[in-house]
Design a protein around this nucleic acid. Structure first.
Length: 589
RNA sequence: CGGGGUGUAGCUUAGCCUGGUAGAGCGCCUGGUUUGGGACCAGGAGGUCGCAGGUUCGAAUCCUGUCGCCCCGACCA
């Protein structure tokens, strides 16, 4: 039981100037957090209590899913990362943690980094400690602070530089068991989000810099989300935009017959899809081959799409380059023979074909038939271009961005889009890390094998904010029971009356007996202030004790989610409170 | 990192264009009247106008630089 007057809940009437979205405003107004700097937040008592509840529920569910809790350092020797598979890509988001020193030490390579996740720590640990198949599987997890140098922290806790995350790492003897571990974690995530009152859906996702073979993201649908979820309600298909695909190209597609030989024609000044669509050329965008040049691990490569399609850059990750980026015009010309706008991949037209790491074609270009593409000669294009006959293609793949309305790959129904907040992510990693760190075990045939890994993350702070985003009204937060900082708020309107405070404490004890956390508002404030604050901080159950009610012989009982107030005779108050708490707990479990 | 915006009291802000005593509301302190949905009256404290330089008789205001913060883009839990 806490007394408001002796606690610390600094609520605000006005929204802070730097908050844009509802949940961010409420985080600050309800006294949950205060900002230190961009993406850095102090958790005030109320915010901390919610974090602790989220953490405990997370711990329980991950343990139920097979997790074993550990705690790894936040600061890592950079050497661990240099040995790992993603130093080049990951160092971008890492903070160095050098000695503050006196400035006389001279510049050095970073000696330590602040951990953005912990594959680079757990894998060497497991390598050293686990060598036998008898000790597998193992799944280690921790709940703690992560550091990422986000280019743009945003929306309060939504994208922070320092944030609390549950991260877990599974080690298995083979792929099949690893998939089992993966789905055990998926089930644990579903249980976690259900218990904390967040409606999160699992969607297929890109593996990104983590690497690995497949993954799911857990998304909380919200307008302010950073990610697009592509889905079809009926078929159950749901994927992150970066991963989403569609059944645009029928599996039984037969390539159109060539209409004639490839033919060059002059297109002075035409360097865009739109310009080629216009008169006098009049080539529809879906009959154009669009050629983009990227640089992967230092070497250029080409990507071909239909003119009407957009590249989904994240899908290039499937090509296996450590890092990649769009090539600059200066890098393109020496290889292709022309500037962007006149590029193509017709055999024999590429100036230095050997200089390319490959030509990767999106499946959808097969829909083009006799199309048009750049001649690798500024001011010229080629027509009657056919995919199989004419183009130099290393490999086909899915590189285009899907559009709403396209057929869903599961059922052929039209796809839809909605925004979501990514609150969790699970990856089946495979052996990417175990290989680098030689994390092997001996099987019962005395054979050495690489451990098969998975890794898993839940953004605890982000989940907190997602819950608020999903559960609030015009007056404030509406906490789900299981994560509410307190379950019961007893508003004592006349705290100077001893009988009022005595009753409050008696009811508080009854509620606590029933397993509720209780806050008593004993401040010498006017009732209006107390009610406004009560709604703002969103405690699920409110009891009101006033001098007026006491004369009538009643206390009031009100749920945050409901409008109506129940007047409870004093004689029944204990029992009613106990019953209400029991009912809420039962509903929430 | 590219584009846009912004920085004035603990918080929300006016003033800046057109240079001349820095103003309000909330909050805070004192006293009084109030007391069931953010009370009222009286009094009071609190600001080197982000920082540095420049122009000027004079700069919150104009100029340059710099730092912080916010938003849009690429990235992530």
């Amino acid at each position: 039981m806490k007394l408001w007057s002796q606690y610390f809940i600094p609520t605000l009437k006005e929204s802070p100037a730097d908050a844009e979205i509802a949940s961010h405003k409420l985080l600050v107004r309800a006294g949950l957090v205060r900002k230190l700097g961009g993406g850095l937040y102090t958790y005030l008592p109320l915010g901390l209590r919610v974090m602790q509840k989220l953490t405990q529920i997370c711990r329980e569910e991950i343990e139920r899913g097979g997790g074993i809790e550990v705690s790894m350092p936040h600061m890592h020797p950079a050497e661990n990362w240099r040995q790992g598979p993603r130093w080049a890509a990951a160092r971008e988001i890492m903070f160095r943690a050098d000695s503050a020193g006196d400035g006389k030490r001279g510049p050095k390579e970073p000696e330590w980094v602040l951990g953005p996740t912990h594959e680079e720590v757990i894998t060497p640990l497991v390598r050293a400690e686990i060598t036998s198949y008898r000790d597998l599987p193992k799944n280690f997890f921790q709940i703690g602070t992560k550091f990422r140098n986000e280019i743009r922290p945003r929306y309060g806790l939504m994208r922070a530089r320092e944030f609390v995350m549950m991260d877990a790492y599974s080690f298995d003897v083979d792929d099949e068991r690893a998939i089992k571990s993966y789905f055990a974690m998926k089930a644990a995530y579903e249980a976690f989000f259900r218990r904390v009152g967040a409606q999160a859906i699992a969607v297929e996702a890109d593996t990104g810099v983590m690497g690995g073979s497949f993954s799911h993201e857990f998304m909380v649908p919200a307008e302010i989300g950073d990610d697009d979820v592509i889905y079809n309600e009926a078929s159950g298909y749901a994927a992150n935009r970066e991963k989403a695909t569609s059944a645009l190209v029928p599996p039984d597609l037969v390539d159109a017959a060539p209409a004639g030989a490839v033919e060059e024609f002059a297109t002075p000044g035409v360097v865009t899809i739109a310009a080629l669509e216009a008169a006098p050329y009049a080539v529809p965008a879906d009959k154009q081959f669009k050629t983009l040049v990227y640089v992967g691990d230092g070497k250029p490569f080409a990507v071909i799409l239909r003119g009407c399609d957009e590249l989904e850059e994240a899908k290039l990750g499937a090509l296996g380059f450590g890092v990649f980026r769009a090539a600059t015009p200066d890098e393109i010309e020496p290889v292709m023979g022309a500037k962007p706008g006149s590029l193509g991949t017709v055999k024999g037209t590429i100036k230095n074909a050997a200089g390319l790491a490959g030509v990767f074609a999106d499946h959808a270009i097969r829909l083009i038939g006799n199309g048009t593409t750049g001649a690798n000669k500024d001011g010229f294009h080629l027509r009657n271009v056919n995919v199989t006959r004419d183009l130099a293609i290393t490999k086909f793949g899915d590189f285009r961005r899907v559009r709403p309305g396209e057929p869903d790959p599961k059922s052929g129904q039209p796809l839809q889009v909605r925004r979501g907040i990514e609150v969790g992510h699970i990856f089946k990693l495979g052996t990417k890390y175990s290989e680098k760190y030689s994390a092997t075990f001996t099987d019962d045939q005395k054979q050495q094998h690489l451990m098969v890994m998975g890794c898993y993350g839940i953004g605890i702070g982000r989940t907190l904010q997602a819950v608020i985003e999903q559960s609030h009204d015009a007056d404030g937060i509406v906490w789900p029971w299981n994560v509410a900082p307190f379950h019961v708020l007893i508003c004592v309107l006349d705290p100077q009356l001893p009988e009022a405070m005595n009753l409050a404490k008696k009811l508080a004890m009854a509620a606590e007996q029933g397993g509720a956390d209780v806050l008593i508002d004993d401040r010498a404030e006017r009732p209006g202030v107390k009610f406004k604050d009560a709604d703002l901080i969103g405690i699920p159950l409110r009891l009101t004790i006033g001098g007026k009610g006491l004369k009538e012989g009643i206390v009031e009982l009100k749920w945050r989610v409901q409008k109506d107030v129940a007047k409870v005779p004093l004689a029944e108050a204990d029992a009613r409170v106990t019953a209400a708490v029991a009912e809420a707990r039962a509903k929430a479990s």
